[in-house]
Amino acid sequence: MKRNEHRSKDTKRRTTLTLPARDLLHAERIARSRKVNLSTVVAEALAEGLRVQAATERSEEVLNSYRQAFGGFSDRDVMLLDGIVLDPPERRR
């Protein structure tokens, strides 16, 4: 099972992409300067872009949960949620 997972992670597929000419030229310049092929540069850029996209989505998910978790409460309610328990004096022991 592990071997299959490892293999699928490393598997590469050939495809055809249509890219903005300016970005492609930029990638080719980087590939030449680093002495690697164009696929390597494009793959790295894609991986980084996907990582940023995933982080942004995760960030939005957390912020949405926060809005639900803390929105709609009064300041006094939030004090309670923060661990500050206030009562009328007569309720005190």
Binding site: R76, M79, I84, L86, D87, P88, P89, R92, R93
Partner: peptide, 12 residues
Amino acid sequence: RRAHQLVESREE
């Protein structure tokens, strides 16, 4: 803490 005639007990 105190707020609006509410108080936090010493235990709290």
